[in-house]
């Protein structure tokens, strides 16, 4: 991945030098960078890796998913707070996670705490399951597990 980025920067510098202008213009550099993206996209299968911008796209996807879920969860909690009588059926459920490693597990926990109706209470010492405190177990169990799967897929796209 970083090799592709370095090649892209290199192409941009070459572009600037080939233009032979009297001074260094940022706009020329950006144009060269865009040309480099085009060249790398054509050539990326010869590197034997994924095209490096797909990772950037998946990071942006993850962030936008996260912000939309955060807004939904806040609205849900605010509705609960402002209802005249708070009737909740909380509970703690176990969820086996598919992500592994020092980056993926904390990232998933962080995202999960900021999603609708769920706080991670405990992570098993092996790091293979979460105990999640859900604010409405009876209602939102399926929804919670569905959004968990969505997060896991988005995280794996970024890190693998």
């Amino acid at each position: 991945m970083p090799a592709q980025f370095l090649v892209n920067i290199f192409i941009a510098f070459l572009w600037v030098l080939f233009q032979d202008e009297d001074q260094f213009y940022i706009t020329t550099f950006v144009t060269g960078f865009l040309v480099g993206i085009g060249i790398l996209y054509v050539l990326h299968r010869f590197f034997g890796e994924r095209f490096y911008l797909t990772r950037v796209v998946s990071i942006i996807k993850l962030i936008s998913l996260f912000i939309s879920e955060l807004c939904q969860s806040s609205i849900q909690v605010l509705k609960l707070i402002l209802s005249p009588k708070i009737e909740v059926t909380p509970g703690i459920i176990r969820y086996e996670i598919n992500v592994r490693g020092e980056w993926e597990v904390p990232l998933l926990a962080l995202l999960l705490i900021l999603t609708p109706g769920s706080v991670v209470v405990e992570v098993t010492p092996e790091g293979d399951a979460f105990y999640i405190h859900a604010i409405d177990v009876t209602e939102s169990r399926e929804k919670l597990i569905k959004s968990l799967g969505k997060y896991e897929r988005a995280i794996m796209e970024v890190t693998r």
Binding site: S74, V77, I81, V88, V119, I135
Partner: peptide, 22 residues
């Protein structure tokens, strides 16, 4: 609103929902 939520929810686990998200 989230500050009122911290007062209104029944126990510490549900209060943490109000404290972290909104």
């Amino acid at each position: 609103i989230s500050a009122t939520g911290i007062i209104r929810f029944p126990d510490v686990y549900t209060r943490s929902h109000a404290a972290t998200k909104s």
